[in-house]
Structure formats: C-alpha cells, structure tokens
Nucleic acid binder design. Structure first.
Length: 241
DNA sequence: GCGACAG
DNA sequence: ATCTTGTCGC
C-alpha cells in the first residue's frame, strides 16, 4: 500500500478521483480479521454551519455483557458496553462532493483514532464501503489508512440498483452495479417498517461477514449500535448535563 | 442535454 | 451534514 505521506487530502476533484482509482486496487474484499473483542463506530458531524468538523469514535466491547438478572429486564438485545470514546474537532477542509466524501471526513477520523488507547478489531463507518462508483467509499478509504477491517453502514444509496428487501428484520437484497451486475453491498431491513440501510464491505471484510456483524450489533433502532452511538456523539446529542 | 448524488 | 416543534406510534 502507498505510504500515507504520499496522500494529499486537499486535492482538486480530478486528482482525487485519480487517487481513488489507484487506491481501490488495495482494498481487500476477503475476510482478514482478528478475533473480535472490540468494535468501533465512527461518524463525523459539523458545527458552526460547517466551519468545524467533529469526528467521533466509540469503542464497544464484544461480546455483549449479559444483562444482570437483578437489573430491570431491558428487553431483548444485550447492551454493548462502551469502553472508550473520543471526539476530535478541527477546521473543515473540504466541501461535500458526492463520491469524494472520504477526503472531507477521513482526516478528522484518523486524528480521533490516534487518541484512542485501545485498538478495535473491527470498525463500522457511517457511509459506503465498496458501494461506490470507484469501489472505495469512506469506509474503505479509512480502513486502508488504518489497516483495519471496516464495514460501511449508510442510511441511503450512493450508487447501484436493488429491489425492495423483505419486511422482516434481517431481510436483505443485493445491491448491484455496473453492466455485469457486480454485487457491491446489501440493502438490509434493520427494523420492521423502517427504510432499509445500505451495508457494504469496507476493507478486509467480505459482504457476508459485513452483513453478519451489522446484524449482530443491531439493538432496538435502525442503525447498529457502533454507528448509532458514534452518530449521537458526533452530532452533539446524548450530551446531557 | 437530463437526472442522480454517502454525509 | 445542519437548520428545527410538535406529533404519531409502539
């Protein structure tokens, strides 16, 4: 893989696209992960009309801690315990351009990761993985730079075609793209009667494994816990005092 | 030329 | 993404 110092984050669209095309060749779509004990969720938010970028990383312990029998039975899914969380703020450097999201968000995410005291074995990113025009969305790009397994979890579609997934939680249909109908992700029904989410391999994770982990991390909401908690932190919610 | 378009 | 109140539903 190219050394990080060769990566310029302030590129003109034309150069950014050329770099993505080159980096896409390094994205691994086969499973290559260590036993999972910690799963991280990453998301980026903005302040002051977009002047400031906020990167949030939340690390959760796996497997879930068994719900104490003396605790108020909180229904089904066991709670994923937060073992560490970090928020990094910095001036926003690039505008949002569909297809070039990673150049706007990855720098801040990397800075946040540098402040973590523990390393996760798996990372869930808010955005697409290989379900991208050049097969290198923000999740893949971040995974490449962190050299960690990543999964893209997006709330909407960037590219590709698909049919409507079944109504039950866990139902999914393939997201395909290109003239050869290449499978680039899955449209997953994470909650009954709720718009599905788009799951795709980021780096070092197969589609089957990506779907499996996202499903295993589903709590009571539409988004899997790692992404949901990072979302809350990045966008200021959940900060009660 | 006319849409589509992660966050 | 963000600006924002109340409101429908489990």
């Amino acid at each position: 893989m190219p050394s990080a110092d060769l990566h310029d984050w302030n590129l003109a669209p034309r150069e950014a696209i050329a770099l993505q095309t080159r980096l896409a060749g390094y994205v691994e779509r086969a499973d290559r992960l260590e036993p999972v004990r910690r799963i991280a969720g990453v998301d980026i938010g903005f302040e002051q009309g977009g002047e400031i970028t906020r990167a949030a990383v939340v690390v959760l312990a796996w497997p879930p801690q068994a719900s104490g029998e003396s605790e108020p039975a909180t229904l089904e899914p066991a709670t994923l315990e937060i073992v560490e969380q970090v928020v990094h703020r910095e001036p926003t450097r690039m505008p949002y351009v569909p297809g070039l999201l990673s150049f706007r968000e990855v720098p801040a995410a990397l800075a946040a990761f540098e402040r973590l005291t523990m390393t996760p074995q798996l990372v869930m990113v808010d955005g697409q993985g290989i379900a991208h025009p050049r097969r290198i969305g923000v999740a893949s790009h971040l995974g490449l730079w962190l050299d960690l397994p990543t999964i893209g979890v997006a709330k909407s579609r960037l590219c590709g075609r698909h049919t409507e997934p079944g109504p039950e939680r866990g139902d999914w249909t393939p997201l395909v793209d290109g003239p050869d109908d290449e499978v680039i992700g899955a449209v997953l029904r994470s909650r009954v009667k709720v718009k599905p989410i788009f799951v795709s391999p980021g780096h070092r994770v197969s589609l089957a494994t990506a779907i499996d982990w996202v499903t295993r991390c589903l709590g009571r909401t539409k988004l899997p816990e790692p992404t949901r908690l990072a979302d809350r932190l990045a966008s200021r919610r959940g900060e009660r005092r």
